[in-house]
């Protein structure tokens, strides 16, 4: 029932993920943060097999930090996403694959453009204007087909994101509680209350 959305706009990427962590029919937690800042201008949501998710997200986070320390430069969004994809693709054919689905959003400070990548546990990567994972994708993708505007202001982008979240809360048989929303733009990463 996990669910995450992301969309690009004029100079930003908005990323949202639900905050519940459930085991079977029990809600164990309702304030789980599944949107991880990976760098000064990079965000990632993660969902999938409990355990794998946090382990993999922290592995990615530390490796990107290590790259930054070694090279005195931050990986650009596409390079970071490619490295993450390759890590998952290699993991897929290993003895214990990670089952983690990701949305990676970043702001490229050298070309001044937002980028969004849809990545699944197989290591499939797609460069997209908007994306979703989980059951929410069946509602959100059609809404985003209709309402997404790549040159929308942040306020308009938030409105569109709210539509997606509201639709999921309305139509999905289980309510997902609160959503954590973060945005990345030229000023870096910050949280947004909706």
């Amino acid at each position: 029932m996990e669910c995450s959305f992301a969309l690009t706009g004029k100079g930003y990427v908005l990323i949202a993920a639900d905050m519940t962590s459930a085991r079977s029919i029990v809600k164990m937690k309702h304030d789980e943060d599944k949107v991880k800042p990976l760098g000064p201008h990079l965000l990632m949501t993660y969902s999938g097999e409990p355990g794998d998710t946090v382990q993999f997200a922290e592995y990615v986070e530390r490796n990107l930090r290590l790259y930054q320390i070694r090279n005195h430069s931050v990986l650009r969004p596409h390079s970071a996403a490619s490295w993450i994809r390759r890590t998952l693709a290699d993991s897929l054919r290993s003895r214990s694959p990670y089952s983690v689905n990701l949305l990676v959003g970043g702001y490229d400070v050298s070309e001044h453009e937002p980028h969004l990548y849809w990545i699944d546990y197989l290591g499939t990567m797609a460069t997209v204007p908007f994306a979703a994972h989980g059951y929410g994708s069946y509602f959100a993708l059609s809404l985003l087909d209709r309402y997404h505007n790549p040159s929308a202001s942040l306020e308009e982008g938030i409105e569109t994101l709210k539509r997606c979240i509201d639709e999921v809360q309305k139509r999905l048989i289980i309510g997902l509680g609160k959503f954590k929303v973060r945005v990345v733009d030229k000023d870096g990463v910050r949280e947004i209350e909706i």
């Binding site: 994809r85 390759r86 693709a89 290591g123 499939t124 990567m125």
Partner: peptide, 11 residues
């Protein structure tokens, strides 16, 4: 074919 392998083989 399988999209993950599209990217991996391309690389």
């Amino acid at each position: 074919g399988l999209a993950t392998d599209v990217a991996t083989l391309r690389e």
